[in-house]
Every structure is written in C-alpha cells, then in structure tokens.
Design a protein around this nucleic acid. Structure first.
Lengths: 225, 225
DNA sequence: GGATAACCGGATAAGGCGCTCCAGATGGTG
DNA sequence: CACCATCTGGAGCGCCTTATCCGGTTATCC
C-alpha cells in the first residue's frame, strides 16, 4: 500500500505524499468522515488527483493509517515482552486506548475492517492472534479472570471509541477512567497484588460541556433559524 | 413541548402526530442523523410542514423522545424503590443500557444535551439528581465502591453508545457484556454476596461482521467501482 | 353557508457531496 | 532538445441537504 507501481513520476510522488499528510491531519482531528474535497483542498491539489491516486476511500485510509497500525503491532510486541503477564495485559489496553484518544481517525480504524487494505488488515490479524497469547499468559498466571474472552477486545475498543467520540476535550480523562474501571473488572482479586487507584473522573462541568458540544457543525454562512 | 398553542387546527394536529410518529421510527432505527426530508417523506407530508411545526431539530427531537425520557425517569424511580440498594443500582444501569440498545436515537439523546428542549432536560436533570441518591445508598450499604463517581454515569452511557452504534446486530450481546464487566468493577467484593456470571460475549464472527458492516451507506444507484 | 385565517406542499435557492471528463502542463528519455 | 506518456486542476453532472416563499386548500367560526 505504501507504493506499488515503481514507475511513478516524482511530482506525482510528491503530491501523493502531500495528500497522505493532509489526510492524516484531517482524519486525526475530525475522524474518517472528512470529505475527499476537503482533503484535496487541504493538500493543495485538485480533487481528481486524490481520486486518481486513491480510487477508493479504503485506499486512502490504508495509506494513512499503515504507520499507526504498525504502532499498534508494536504495542502488542511490547506487551508480550513485559515479564509480568498482568502488566503486559493492562499496559496493552491502556496504550491502545490512549492511541484512540490521540487520533479520532485511528479510533474508527480499530473498530472497522477495510477488506481491500490488505497490509492494514494483516497487521490487525497479527495483533488479534497475539492477543490470544497475551490473554492466555495472564490467565495462566492467575491474574486475569478466566471468563475474559478474546472478543472482549473489540467490545472494549468500541466502548472506548464511543467515549472518545462523545467527550471531546474530556476524552483523555474519560477514557482513562473507563479503562481503569474495566481493568478492575478483569483482574483477579488477589491477596498479593493490589490494583492502582482509579484515575480520577473528568469534572462534571467537563462532561456537561462535552454533551453540549456534540452537535453537527453548521455550514459556513447560514441564516441559522 | 407536547402542545403549546391550544388553537391548533385538527388537521394540523393530525399531521403533527404523523410527523412525530414517522420521526420516532426513523430515529429509532437509524439515529438522529436522519434528514428532515426523509422524515417528511416518510410521514407523507411536505417538507415545509415539518419545518413549520418544528423549526429546530431540537424541537423535533424533544417531541419525539419526551416519552422515552419519561421511561428513563421511571427506570430511576423503580431503581430507588428497589429494597436492595445494589440491586437497584445495577438494575438501573442494565435497564438504561438496554434502552440504548433498543433505540439508536435515544442512545444519542442520552449523551447530548438539547438546551432548548426544556421538558426533556428537566427530566434528565431529575434523573441525574436521583442518581446521586442511588449511588449514596449503594455505597452506604457497602456494596458499591466508594470511588464510583456521579460522572461515571455519562462515561458509561457514552461507552455503551459506542458499542451500540458500532456492533449493529450484535449490539444486544456486546452491550450486556460491557455492562457485566463494568458492574463487576463497581461492586465491592464481599463474602456474603456473589456476582452473577458474566453474560456470554458475542461470537467472534458476529463481531467481525459488525466491524465489516460499519461503513457509510452508499447512495441508491451508483456505479460504485 | 359563507368568510377568513390557518394550513398545506411543491418549487426554488444556495450549498455540499462523490465522481468523471478533458484540455493543457510537465517530467523523463531518446 | 524535443517528444510523449504521465500527470494535473477544475468545470460539470447528478444527487443530496437545509430553509424559504407563495398559490391553492381547508377547518373553523359566525
């Protein structure tokens, strides 16, 4: 997905890079719903140029998020390298949910599939497979509840995506809080080990403002009412 | 919001009801993003009729979801009436998250505010106030963790909204699973009381299909490459 | 059974979207 | 250095959105 046809003119290559860079910024800030028009405008190229280089939305998404997906894989490697199985497990969830907080587009990428973006999906599959090992390790060590299931990862990512999308500026605090709650639920209560204190919740006013903020942006110049 | 001007012609009244009914169906199935056009079409009235009766989107949302909001309030009353404080608490969360599963529009209503829809907001405020009592009661009984905060309700609703929106047909199972996890986290581990088994997770294929499903619907007849 | 105010809904304006097409600019190569 | 394939940007199409305007219809009151 990075580059397939070797025979690409260098000006085309430069434009391609500018498009990907613009798309990354916009996706990160506003999510995947950003229009192709806007990507083109922001990149300083014509609409057709974007469409020619990335005929499908998935092509663009794939090109933009491949590096982030590599980061996802890397988080898993780091988790498996962690000597303490529970630490590895909890650290993985915290890291990944943190990645969602930091990037609205990636938040969506993690809870959808993009069947045509093979490179992206193969990375995701690897992480999914390793997640099984991460679970098994923590469960064997008696630190993770036996009824924690592989599918719970997606449920967690979807839940966190909801928090991230809905709570705007308070996303950081809200997400940490959610993950804190969940980790308490997943951990086996044991005598030797005590869980860290719950991250403090977002302030009430922050949550209220988040609920207020959450409405579709009005078009540029409108009489409004 | 139900009806303010008494002097409304009965044909106008009938149209109003048809609009609200159509909007309820569409909002429930597809969320609040349904266009006014579509509501009008589905109700069998002109666009102008909808706009005249409900000048603001919030007016329509308010009219549509006032009954559901009453149901929300009722769920809280029932929870407070429950003799066992923990039962009341957990039952409330289960009920409300179940309401989100059953109604995509209401899912969004619960995580936004609609400042102009006073009737709606006053109900929400009442529930919010009572939620404080619900918490206090369960904490006094030593069944709810002391660090559970009032703000956590909104975080939970946002998380559940994410699961509901993202998991489509698997929403029921995924949501129950999430709530099950969370309740385990909120409960004080005690000798006398044992928590119920975790609801079983959605199947892996169901979650995969959900991730596949989650893409913007293509327009009616398109070449679609 | 009229008169009249309220009400209706389609047409229309103004904008955005994805997407295609094509005349012209430009890079790489013989 | 000249040629041609490659690449470009924007105009144009068809469809959507929200919101307003206005000629015709209809319920209600006298």
């Amino acid at each position: 997905m990075t580059d397939d046809g070797q025979r690409i003119r260098i000006d085309a290559r430069r434009n391609r890079d500018r498009i990907v860079e613009a798309a990354r910024e916009l996706f990160t800030r506003h999510g995947l719903s950003v229009s192709t028009n806007e990507v083109a405008r922001h990149a300083g190229v014509g609409i057709a140029t974007v469409l020619r280089r990335f005929p499908t939305r998935d092509d663009l998404v794939g090109a933009v998020f491949l590096p982030k997906m590599a980061g996802y894989r890397h988080a898993m490697s780091a988790a498996l390298a962690e000597p303490d199985p529970w630490h590895g497990f909890s650290q993985f969830l915290e890291t990944v949910c943190g990645m969602q907080v930091a990037d609205l587009g990636f938040t969506e990428v993690l809870i959808r599939t993009f069947p045509t973006a093979r490179a992206l999906e193969s990375q995701r599959d690897e992480v999914a497979a390793d997640f099984g090992r991460l679970i098994a390790r923590a469960q064997s060590a008696g630190r993770l509840r036996p009824d924690f299931a592989h599918q719970d990862l997606v449920v967690i990512l979807m839940a966190n995506a909801g928090v991230v999308a809905a709570s705007g500026p308070a996303a950081e605090a809200a997400s940490r809080r959610l993950v804190g709650h969940l980790l308490r639920s997943f951990a086996v209560a044991s005598h030797g080990h005590s869980l860290p204190a719950l991250p403090s919740p977002p302030s009430r006013t922050a949550m209220y403002l988040a609920m207020l903020r959450l409405r579709p942006a009005p078009p540029k110049p409108a009489t409004r009412r």
